[in-house]
Structures are given as structure tokens and as C-alpha cells.
Amino acid sequence: MSDKSYLAAPYRNSLSATAKAMLNHQLLGKDETHLDYGCRRGGDVERLLNAGYKSNGYDPYYFSSAATPADVVTMSYVLNVIENPEERREALLNAWSLTKKRLIISSNVRGSGIDPGKLTSLGTFTKFYNHIELKAYIESTLGIEAVKLDKDKFVVQHDGLQFKPLPYEKILEESQAIALSGWIPSMEVIIKGYCNDFKPRAGFDEVDSGEFPGRIRYYRLLAKERSLPGKTGLVRCLHIRGGIGSEQMEWAIAAIKRRNRIAEMKFHCIEQNFLSEFLGLKKFDFLDTDNVKIYR
């Protein structure tokens, strides 16, 4: 950590927001051990011990004795005060190495851009993440899914979905190979169902297994910009002939799977060189590269 990072440790009269979230989500039982990695003055440790939990702390300035592994590890607003990127990555990997079951990470989250960080009037370093950047950073460092608890809090489980973070050059190479096999839609393209006929029609109750009785269900590719291959040029909407199970639907799904595979690699890029492509997204459907979501 920065030489003055300990000055950023606040005084609290109650449990931190991270510790409260851990208890509210029932992520720590009284039969489990807990380590507060970067515990600062140890306020959470003291209050958890008083509440009957098996808690311990580690901090390079306030509690510098060797950290011991624990079932549950919390890393509360630590990443945002480490100025050196290598030290920041090392701290996250070290906290994970001490985790037996789950790691809970929180950091300052604000805005939609990429904040490089700055020095405060105290001489401490501070950085703000956005929720996309924080999730990408955790997953590209640890190679395991980070599940969102709140806008600034994620949990990583040892039995969570695993990824394979790749370096920038390898991602470019594999992306080019995937693109050679067919069209790659842009990130905002989705498959969307719709109805044209809203009046009950005899004989059509079997359409979509009865979910839309008496209505004929159609499907199309939708994009925010003109990026879809129409007959006379690029369009924003492309009808999928034949609906579910048709050859055109299979073509559309295959194209989005190719897009999702490339997006997943870029999202987990070790150097995080592609983050700007994901800013503004609220869902992470593209991380499920085997199952393409069809919006009903």
C-alpha cells in the first residue's frame, strides 16, 4: 500500500457497510472463521468478536502480524487506496489465497468513466471504480466470478464459475480467429420477441407453449444503431423468419455466441485494455457464452 494509506482509515462507531452486508446476506456463520484483510484500526474485528463471531484482522500498519487463513475474508475499501497497480493486484491475490470459502470485496464506486486515481490533501491515494470496472478487475485477477451484493460490493466463492483471464495480444489473436467463422454483432444487439396480433385466434393457442395464447409470436434482432446486415444496407431491426427453431434463429444465436465469446475474453483481459467497450452496460448476459438470452 501507499506509505500514507493508513491515514485514510476512518473512525467508526459501528460496523462498516461491508461487515453489515456480510451479516445481512448471511455470508458468515458463527461456526466459521473471519479475517478482515486491511482491517485498519480493527473496529469490525472488535465488534464481531463481541457479537460472538470468530474474527481476526490484518493490516500492514495497525496489525502487521502475519495474516491467518479464514473461511470468510473481507477486503473493505482497500483496493481504492493502493496507488501502485502491481501492489493492488498482489493485495487482492493475497487476500484470495487466505480465503477458504468466500471473499467479500468492497471499493469506492462512482461515475461511469475510468478514474486513474489521485492524491488527496492528506497525501493518500484514492481511486473510484464503476461497478463494471470493479467486477472486471476482480474476475480478471482471480479468474472466478464476482457476484454483485451491492453497487460497491462483490462476493467471490471458491466454488464459483471460473474464467480464464488472457493477455491482450492473445485476445486479439483468438478474436480474429472467431471473427473468421461468421458475422459478429455489436454489444447492444439482442434477440427480441414481439406480437403483431393481439386478438385471440382459434387454433393458435399452441404458439409459444401457451405463454401467449391466441397470439402469433415473432422474433427479430434489434440494435441501437444501424449495424445489422439488411438487404439494402445496415439496419436497426432484422426480422428472424420462422421463429424459434428456424435456421435463421440458429444463425442469429450462433452470431451472438461468437460475440459473447469475444466479449467474455475482452472483459477478462489481464491488462483491462477493453473496458471502455462495456461502460454503460447494466447486465452481464454476455458472460454466459453457452446460453443466449432471448428477450420475450
Rank of each mutant, 00 (worst) to 15 (best):
H25D: 15
L161C: 10
R102T: 01
W96F: 07
S112L: 10
L222P: 08
S14L: 04
E247Y: 04
S64H: 10
L48N: 01
R220P: 04
D152C: 08
Q157V: 07
G160A: 13
E188P: 11
K30N: 03
G230Q: 05
T124A: 08
S16R: 00
V207S: 13
L228M: 12
E139V: 04
G111C: 05
K30P: 00
R215W: 05
R241P: 07
T18K: 03
N50W: 06
A146Q: 01
E145N: 11
L23I: 13
D36V: 04
R102D: 01
H25V: 14
N13F: 06
S209G: 08
T74R: 03
A223N: 10
F278M: 02
P69V: 07
A177E: 12
E133S: 11
S5H: 09
G242Q: 06
A9G: 03
L79N: 06
K151A: 13
T126L: 09
I294V: 07
G245Y: 00
G113T: 09
L7P: 04
S55L: 01
T141L: 03
E173K: 07
F198Y: 14
K101C: 05
A255F: 02
G52I: 02
F125C: 03
R217I: 11
Q248R: 13
M1C: 08
L15E: 01
D290Y: 11
I144L: 07
I240M: 02
K257W: 00
K266L: 04
L279S: 07
T232A: 14
G230E: 02
T124P: 06
K257Y: 01
N130D: 10
F125A: 04
F128A: 14
I262A: 09
S64W: 06
G111Q: 06
K148V: 00
S276M: 09
S2Y: 10
P200E: 12
T33H: 11
I216S: 14
R241V: 14
F204W: 13
T141P: 03
E264R: 14
I216G: 10
H25T: 15
K30D: 01
R226G: 06
L103F: 01
Y61T: 08
D159I: 10
E169S: 08
M249A: 05
L180K: 15
A202N: 13
E206M: 09
K283F: 07
I132T: 14
S186N: 15
V292F: 00
Q157E: 12
A223Y: 08
D288Y: 05
A254R: 12
E206A: 12
H25P: 12
Y194W: 13
A202W: 09
D71N: 08
C39I: 00
P229W: 00
L222T: 15
I240K: 04
G243W: 01
G214Q: 10
L119Q: 11
K118W: 05
K199H: 12
V81L: 05
L79R: 00
A9H: 02
S64Q: 13
L28K: 15
D290H: 11
K148I: 02
R89T: 15
G57N: 05
K293Y: 09
T99G: 04
R102P: 00
L281T: 07
E32C: 02
Y77I: 11
S64E: 09
G230C: 05
I253F: 03
T289H: 09
R201W: 08
M265V: 06
